[in-house]
Design a protein around this nucleic acid. Structure first.
Ligand SMILES: [Fe+3]
Ligand SMILES: [Fe+3]
Length: 906
DNA sequence: AAGAAAAAAAAA
């Protein structure tokens, strides 16, 4: 059943229909040629990527293109099967005996592909045209598993299951599939391909599946690949498919931009270009060849390391190490800000003299909201400039889904989006494949906890495996972390055992700021000078309790200073705020800022805080102002205080907080020198585990790192000063030592327990992430929901707040010109579940405190999109109390946030 | 008794 007879038969099998009833269909052969053409042309138009990727198959570039096209051209072979064809009775092939059975769902078409690819005769055809390594479970998994999930293990290899499934597909279908393969392969791989260098089938399987998925998504666009007469021969259709693939790839922004061969700092940031910082000069002096590599930059905020990283990324792209850039950050807020900075740098990163502008994307769970808010504020300002420029760089296809977002030329987003590529999630390979074509920049890497740190190791290793490059930006990293990151990258490049040990023969440098590079040879370390203005000395003063802290803050504010009081716990901050009011500090000189605000109120508070303490604040704004805050001020906001008072915390966080002291250049500060007061008992008196509880209250228990916290107190108070940069490495290395021998007896056991917790988190991360030594076929138990998360932590609940208007519940926070969907989002906050449930006796179906008026609540929720309807919703009465069925003493307003009426915060 | 942070529709 080959040749002319076979051709007329397989053209009866549909792959796509306009609708299931009538009109035409696209036969399997045409769709396979479409997708093969997209895969092949994508690589052919991307020579730098091809050069990296071909190392995985061990073939030459042109051979690798043909191999990938041929394999992509088999992905939907399983549509030649009875179960699949039964889904459109109107098109049931005449060639098949019997009439169309009613919907047969025993086998999906992609699983049928896995079975067919292991048919003896089809394997023989494959071997005749393609290298022998394609007869491999990983390759079968990569080709068949193109709907986001790898086929089950019992579909791979000679298993009984496969024998059972052949009759389900139908022996007649199997025969026709054979004849289709026999026709396709000579078109897609005209000259038989021989084995080349070593094929790394495990790594290749991820890359191949990513490419096939991409090609399938592109090739399934009916507008770009319209239906032809099903009888049109494959030979006649093939050139049409190639032409359409070229056009579709261009239209979807998937043909890489050109990269300027010489990029200067001033092209990326005119401001930085004028007077380059030391780290930027260091970056400028590096040379790049086409070896996948990793650069780690450790330097402080304000050192210009972001521009240094973009400069390196530009040079890496020019050297063929990537076609675009993705900057991953730990929060949505910093991602939004980075998106803005990329917008300014993008003209320097890409050569836009060609036919299109470079695309730019913002990738996180709330990016649509961020876009809506941007558009709204642009309308308010009357200035359409930014909105338009962002819109012109927005590519509809790429921007349609977070899964395709990484295909943009430049992107900013959360690190979590990148983690989704190494967690067992649907379509993980699509994200991997896109990232492998970007220079992956990880910003603020120090913000990773143990769980995220292990995810990061896997991410780095997988990126290296697929031939991608990485830039990591961080404040001081521990030596262990640096070593782990380099190890991850090197092992992704195939370095093992003895070669790995040799890499670390010499101890890693103690210098700071530091640029470390690994490019396959030895580890290079370049010490940098500290940027002017960043070297500083802060006086550390221990404050014995909150009362002393309060007096200190009031005294400084009385002298006109701008004061920050940073608490480790929200309830402590609320209590501190209360105490300041009770002590007579004027409310208009007092702000409370934490994360338990509805988003709209939080944004307003953030704006106020920036106005009072930001780079543009004048002495009139600042005079006598006190900000009481939690960790929300630790990161990303560019704030400057004359005096900082903080709860005792791990030293790396105290360093971040101290960085908010005397940050901008200002004349005539009301205080003589930068001082950080740290609220803590004397560490010499730490004779029991709970040595902090009495002084700090709830804030004593936030960080479950008793050894780290105690050492932070010991060293800071002993020194009495914090010298930047000299003190940073020694302080961090000392605080995070593993051995307990320097700790007070009372803390040693708790310290060991906290190490155990970290180790447990790392173990969970190892279990959750993909096995970085294995292949796509080994990725199982794909998790569809949040049961495997990008972060580990206590359970939180999302709550929306409403007020009553004419009997209906409407968003509590509203904004002019915003739609109701946006208003609801602005009325949303997230809170620890345990906190919310404390003292709750009457619960609703969702296990949360029952609302007073469930009918009104359900009516309001009924208007939300379906996937939002499980979000909790409470009405806020005019006195601010939350309308729960049982009086829980919960209270909300825009000044204090969500709290319990009787808050005890020590 | 204890922080902030992200993710979550649905596909080719
Ligand atoms: Fe398919
Ligand atoms: Fe398909």
């Amino acid at each position: 059943m080959t040749g002319a007879a076979g051709r007329t038969l397989y053209s009866q099998f549909w792959a796509k229909t306009a609708d299931k009833e009538c009109r035409g269909y696209k036969p399997v052969g045409h769709h396979l040629l479409d997708v093969a053409a997209v895969a092949g042309r994508y690589l052919a138009k991307n020579p730098a990527r091809l050069e990296r990727e071909r190392r995985l198959s061990g073939l030459s570039g042109p051979e690798h293109v043909r191999l990938c096209a041929a394999l992509a051209g088999l992905h939907d072979l399983g549509k030649i099967s009875r179960p699949f064809q039964s889904q459109a009775p109107a098109f049931w092939p005449a060639a098949l005996s019997g009439s169309c059975p009613s919907q047969d769902r025993r086998l999906s078409h992609w699983e049928a592909t896995a079975v067919l690819l292991q048919d003896r005769e089809i394997e023989r055809l494959l071997k005749a045209s393609l290298p022998t390594f394609v007869i491999d479970n990983q390759i079968v998994a990569a080709v068949a598993g193109h709907h986001g999930v790898a086929p089950d293990g019992n579909l791979l290899g000679a298993t009984g299951e496969i024998t059972l499934l052949r009759p389900v597909i139908g022996e007649d279908c199997i025969g026709i599939a054979r004849s289709l393969v026999a026709e396709l392969l000579p078109l897609l791989a005209p000259n038989a391909l021989e084995d080349g260098d070593t094929c790394h089938a495990e790594a290749f399987s991820f890359s191949l599946n990513g490419l096939i998925t991409l090609a399938d998504w592109v090739g399934s666009d009916v507008d770009a690949f319209p239906f032809e007469e099903p009888e049109m021969s494959l030979e006649a259709y093939h050139p049409l498919a190639l032409e359409r693939a070229d056009r579709a790839l261009s239209a979807k922004g998937l043909v890489p931009m050109k990269h300027p061969l010489s990029v200067r700092l001033s092209d990326l940031s005119p401001r930085a270009g004028g007077s380059p910082r030391p780290m930027q000069r260091l970056a400028d002096g590096l040379h790049f060849d086409a070896t996948p590599q990793m650069v780690v930059i450790e330097d402080g905020t304000g050192s210009g390391k972001t521009e240094a990283a973009l400069l390196i990324a530009a040079r890496m792209m020019a050297a063929g190490l990537g076609e675009g850039v993705y900057v991953a950050l730990p929060t949505m807020a910093t991602a939004n800000a980075m998106h803005g900075r990329l917008e300014n740098a993008i003209r320097g990163l890409f050569d836009e003299s060609g036919e299109r502008m470079a695309s730019l994307v913002l990738a996180h769970g709330r990016s649509r909201l961020a876009r809506e808010l941007d558009a709204l504020s642009a309308r308010h300002d009357g200035g359409q400039g930014r909105e338009e420029s962002v819109a012109s760089r927005f590519n509809a296809w790429i921007g349609d889904s977070r899964k395709t977002a990484f295909f943009a030329d430049a992107g900013a987003g959360t690190i979590d989006q990148a983690f989704l590529s190494i967690l067992p999630k649907k379509h993980l390979t699509l994200r991997q494949y896109a990232l492998a074509g970007r220079i992956l920049v990880i910003d603020e890497a120090h913000a990773c906890d143990a769980y995220m740190g292990e995810e990061l190791n896997t991410l780095v290793r997988q990126q290296a495996r697929l031939g991608g490059s990485v830039i990591i930006l961080s404040a001081t990293l521990g030596r262990r972390q640096r070593r782990e990151l380099i190890t991850a990258f090197a092992s992704g490049r195939g370095v093992r055992q003895r070669r790995m040990q040799a890499l670390f023969a010499a101890p890693l440098s103690e210098a700071y700021p530091l640029l470390t590079r690994y490019a396959g040879g030895e580890i290079e370390e370049h010490a940098s000078d500290t940027a002017p203005g960043l070297a500083r000395s802060v006086v550390i003063r221990r404050l014995g309790d909150r009362k002393e802290a309060l007096a200190e803050a009031l005294a400084a504010a009385g002298r006109g200073a701008a004061v920050a009081m940073v608490c480790n716990a929200v309830d402590s901050a609320i209590a501190m705020h209360r105490a300041l009011i009770d002590a007579g500090h004027p409310p208009h000189r007092l702000t409370l800022f934490h994360a338990r605000f509805a988003m709209g109120d939080r944004m307003a508070t953030e704006e106020k805080v920036l106005r009072l303490f930001g780079p543009d604040s004048g002495s009139g704004d600042r005079i006598g102002q006190i900000l009481v805050a939690t960790q929300v001020v630790e990161q990303s906001l560019d704030l400057d205080f004359d005096l900082m008072i903080s709860d005792l915390a791990p030293v790396d966080l105290l360093i971040q907080r101290a960085g908010r002291l005397w940050r901008h250049r200002r004349e005539g500060r009301p205080l003589a020198e930068p001082v950080m007061g740290v609220i803590s008992p004397d560490p010499a008196d730490a004779t029991e585990i709970d040595w902090l509880g009495e002084v700090l209250g709830p804030a004593a228990y936030t960080y479950r790192l008793p050894g780290v916290v105690w050492r932070s107190a010991r060293d800071l108070f002993q020194n009495g000063r914090l010298e930047t940069p000299g003190d940073l490495r020694p302080l961090i290395e000392a605080a995070y030592r593993l051995e307990p021998d320097d700790l007070p007896q009372a803390l040693a056991a708790a310290h060991d327990a906290s190490l155990g917790n970290d180790y447990a988190a790392v173990t969970i991360a190892r279990n959750n992430t993909i096995d970085p030594g294995r292949g796509y076929g080994d990725v199982r138990r794909v998790s569809l929901d949040e049961e495997i998360g990008t972060r580990l932590g206590e359970e939180t609940v999302t709550v929306r707040l409403a007020r009553r208007s004419g009997g209906l519940l409407v968003p509590a926070v509203r904004r002019d010109g915003a739609g109701v969907g946006l208003d609801w989002a602005l009325s949303e906050l997230s809170v620890r579940k345990r906190w919310l449930l404390a003292g709750a006796a009457i619960l609703d179906g969702g296990g949360l405190p029952a609302p007073r008026d469930p009918a009104a609540r359900d009516a309001a929720r009924g208007l939300w999109p379906e996937w939002e309807r499980t979000i909790a919703l409470y009405e806020v009465d005019s006195d601010g109390s939350l309308a729960t069925a049982q009086d829980m003493g919960l209270f909300y307003d825009g000044v204090g946030g969500l709290r319990r009426q009787s808050v005890s915060g020590a």
